[in-house]
């Protein structure tokens, strides 16, 4: 059976659906039996969600850029 360490090593591929059929089965089997790894995967998903919701853009004038591009488009006609 897959060890917890191996499960962690495969965790990103699991989250991205990149595992081979047989490895995918091993991972799912491990997860049904191991509460620690279930928690780990759940927390990995939380941490992905946190990252997605973080405001990363540095404060910059996106509306100004949009206006400049719209102007450029209109003047190219």
């Amino acid at each position: 059976m897959l060890s917890c360490k191996e499960l962690v090593a495969n965790s990103s591929d699991y989250l991205d659906n990149r595992l081979s059929l047989s490895r995918g089965l091993e991972v799912r089997l491990h997860l049904t039996l191991c509460v620690n790894c279930r928690r780990f995967i759940r927390q990995m998903k939380i941490s992905q969600a946190v990252y997605r919701k973080m405001q990363l853009e540095k404060a910059e004038d996106l509306d100004g850029l949009a206006q400049k591009l719209a102007d450029a488009q209109r003047s190219s006609d």
């Binding site: 962690v8 759940r42 939380i46």
Partner: peptide, 25 residues
């Protein structure tokens, strides 16, 4: 260092106090 020689967790993740991204952020 989080794992024993046999590949089991040595220091397994604990339950988190907050577990919605909204609350965390």
């Amino acid at each position: 260092d989080r794992f024993a020689d046999d590949g089991h967790w040595l220091m397994a993740p604990h339950e988190w106090h907050q577990d919605t991204p909204e609350a965390m952020l």
